[in-house]
Amino acid sequence: MLDPTHDDPPILVCADLQVEYLTQGRRHVILDGDAALPRCLDLLTLWRDNLWPVMHLKRIAQAAWFNPASKLTDWIAEAKPRPGEMTFEHPLPSAYSSARFVDYMSNIRAVRCVLLGFSLDETVLATVVDGFHRSHRYQVVSDAVACRQPGADDAAAYKQAVVNVIGNFAIIRTSAELIRTSGAIAMQAGATG
């Protein structure tokens, strides 16, 4: 859960909240974006209302299926970064493929991040594993992440399998847990400010 013993709240990391992943007929359309997006937006609102740090990751791959000039790589309107919120573009699945991201993460103390968003089986998984090997602590919000539709396999089982793998490298939380514990974090942050 959120840890009220820390002076600083964790950074909310919004992974790949891009139009590409919600556009029907696209190769990388995600499985349960309609279910995950409202939870992502609820947590994003919670962080913004409390003026806690927010970071946005944007996948800009150099593959034919992901045209960076296309409007499909734009942010989902409701999740568009606001002034003062950090943004990092990454060419490979892991956010650590961005030199700016690596530099930022290596220069903050006690890296603690809450990760949500799309491309669970790419960006979220790769970032958590890379972060784990750098001793960066992540929490992944299981009901605020979504992934691609796998081939002919059971989609829900596929997502759960990916979440189970991520559980070896990060703490798995639900949006309800984070919202419930946010009051303690807000009080702690207010007492230190």
Rank of each mutant, 00 (worst) to 15 (best):
W47A: 07
P81S: 00
A155W: 03
S70V: 05
A156V: 14
E122V: 05
C40D: 06
D143N: 13
L2M: 08
P150W: 14
V19C: 04
D130M: 07
V19T: 12
D3R: 05
S70P: 11
M105P: 00
K80T: 15
G167W: 10
G84Q: 06
A77N: 08
Q139S: 13
P4V: 10
L12F: 03
L178I: 14
S175E: 09
A69I: 00
M187N: 08
P38R: 09
E177F: 02
S175Q: 11
V140E: 07
H6F: 12
L2C: 04
R26P: 03
I171P: 00
T23K: 14
L115G: 04
S98V: 04
T181D: 15
R180A: 13
A63S: 15
V29M: 10
H90D: 00
V111H: 02
Q24M: 07
T87K: 09
P68D: 01
A146S: 15
V128E: 09
R27W: 08
V128I: 13
A144E: 07
H6C: 07
L31E: 06
R48E: 05
V114F: 08
H6R: 15
K58R: 15
G117W: 02
L17I: 14
L116Y: 00
T181L: 06
T73L: 14
I166A: 11
D121R: 02
Q62H: 12
E89Y: 02
T45H: 13
F132S: 14
T127R: 05
T73K: 08
V124Y: 05
T23H: 13
N67R: 11
N164T: 13
C40P: 01
P4H: 11
R100W: 00
Y158H: 15
S182A: 15
A156K: 08
P68I: 01
T123M: 06
P10F: 09
R39V: 06
S94M: 06
D8E: 12
M1Q: 09
